[in-house]
Design a protein around this nucleic acid. Structure first.
Lengths: 340, 340
DNA sequence: CTGTTAGCGCATTCAA
DNA sequence: TTGAATGCGCTAACAG
């Protein structure tokens, strides 16, 4: 063994095996037939030198990065975390690496990351937008790289998209909430700028239309998908210190985090769920099934979305898929204790 | 503008600017003085061609990856997600990229990832172990790369470590729990193989020793840091359908997820927290402050741990830091509603 | 089937 | 100060 600190290269292997460099390369990549005799010599040399191919060199030569980027606002949101895991699971075994880029939920650091990603010359990007805004940085990226949008659509952007059927999901969970017999529903919608928020809202409206409740009797609040905003909305809905039977008897929150905020406030003022008020969410984050009462919600196939988005991206990179494919995966209703 | 699909290279810039390639390189990296006249010409050429340096080539030349790896069991654990965010925030602005590798909490996919990471020739690794086991893959990695262990220590491993002071944190939260006046405490510890679990356990024992309660009167259960295992432990602790005042009056769970499991079971059997039973956790995951009652726990500086670990790693890569540095960051007690 | 050769895009010697 | 030349480690023609 001679291993003077420097890792072995293809050249070293060729020398030790007594064959040409290109033969080693060809054998290792099985890009052409190599006679059994040489195969053995090469294999031995590889083992002897503990040769590990240098992907940097290979990628430079092949003009690719063997890496895709994930642009995501934050990982603290368990839904995004699940998405990331789905992406990773698709990548596993492909030899493609995942480069993580957090933009912050405000999207302020987006610019810096965009330039970093351009320099890294990644093969493609899975982008999860938190703002719903089409920033110039993002636009620029989409021009240069194969990009698949996950979870959140962006208006008028000619990019592939994988998400879930927010409207149908919203409708199904709202149907359950309305079936409780309550007549004074409130909706806590998400930010106007987000496609998911608006899609869910239209699902809620469909359900309302089928319930016989006048649109006019429905209270509409807005939140920004955070726990704090859900709590704040609940306080507007139930301003009293103690629950007295007034206020909405159904609260439809546009995501689980906001529903948690509602649950929190209701318990504090002494209203019981689902007896006094029925509450539903959206997302099915893990805690939805850990709290008391467990939360009725709709499960988005976060893992699948990540997986499918990556699959689509990989195919786009290989030139197999169109750049404007759109996939909406089905959601699944989870009826639990917060509805009756 | 001539942009026939192919991105511009240094050579193109040199040609357009009418200077030598090496001059452009030197100017862009400010590695030597360049006359003002040439500076202008180079700048113009860069702008005209929309030149973006190819990091792959640069990295090949400089024998580095400009990327570090994060090896983490899963992102679904919000604590790990926060750690990852801390890592990312340290990296932001350095031009170093983060490559994500999920091993799965069982550690089965570890082997495959290790080989991928070796091929990618990353500059270093931040490793979060879920198993506490020292696998051969990991050992191999540590030999080859600068590695910093975050959160979880590994026995007899000569690697740098950044985590929090689990023992003191555990002691402080146990002190609060025991101050409730209860005399029948139960501890739900984590897996024996994990250093954090054992460190917390010894902190609990310290608190117990100071409380006058006989070690003998303490019930010790084991879980594996999951919600399900916390729930299971709670069912062993309180096997009855309805709470009748028997069973532990203090439950000290080794992490928040397990504490959530306990809370869930207690509510189901009709025990109230903190009146009947006091419950504490560890980690301060976001939901700890969203549920009812809010959970008394100890906050680990997850973000800081990630940040510090990365800082240490970067310094190790630059040859500034020793490979066996150990940092234990202070925890912070969060007294909330689940204790009285 | 195998070896020789020419770059991928860049940083860095060495002369000028 | 600047320019010309060399090679990082690899793949993919090309010629044998």
């Amino acid at each position: 063994m001679n291993d003077p600190s420097e890792p072995a290269t293809l050249k070293d292997v060729a020398r030790v095996a007594g064959v040409a460099l290109s033969t080693v390369s060809a054998y290792l990549n099985s890009t052409r037939k190599v006679s059994p005799a040489l195969q053995v010599r090469i294999r031995d040399a590889v083992r002897e030198l503990d040769y590990i191919p240098n992907f940097q060199a290979r990628n430079l030569r092949m003009k690719r990065a063997a890496s895709i980027g994930l642009v995501v606002p934050e990982l603290a949101n368990p839904y995004f975390a699940a998405l990331a895991e789905g992406i990773e699971s698709r990548l596993s075994g492909t030899g493609v690496t995942l480069t993580l880029s957090l933009t912050g939920s405000t999207g302020d650091r987006e610019e810096a990351h965009a330039s970093l990603l351009r320099r890294a010359r990644l093969d493609g990007l899975v982008v999860i937008s938190a703002t719903g805004r089409t920033t110039s940085a993002l636009l620029d990226l989409i021009e240069r790289f194969p990009v698949v949008l996950a979870d959140e659509q962006l208006p008028s952007l000619n990019a592939a998209f994988v998400g879930s059927d927010n409207r149908r999901g919203a409708r199904s969970v709202a149907d359950v909430a309305l079936a409780s017999g309550g007549r004074r529903p409130a909706i806590i919608a998400g930010p106007r700028s987000l496609w998911t928020a608006e899609a869910r809202l239209s699902g809620y409206r469909e359900a309302l239309a089928g319930s016989g409740i006048e649109e006019h009797d429905v209270i509409l609040e807005r939140g920004d998908y955070t726990f704090a905003s859900g709590l704040a909305a609940a306080m507007r809905l139930y301003p009293l210190e103690r629950y007295d039977g007034s206020g909405p008897d159904i609260v439809i929150a546009s995501n689980d985090l906001m529903a948690l905020g509602v649950l929190r406030h209701l318990r504090r003022i002494g209203a019981s769920v689902p007896e006094d008020v029925v509450v539903v969410g959206f997302d099915d984050i893990p805690v939805a099934d850990m709290i008391t009462p467990t939360l009725t919600t709709v499960s988005q196939p976060a893992h699948d979305i990540g997986f499918t988005a990556t699959d689509l991206l990989l195919r786009t990179i290989d030139g197999e898929a169109l750049a404007d494919e759109r996939v909406e995966l089905p959601t699944e209703l989870r009826v639990r204790e917060s509805t009756r």
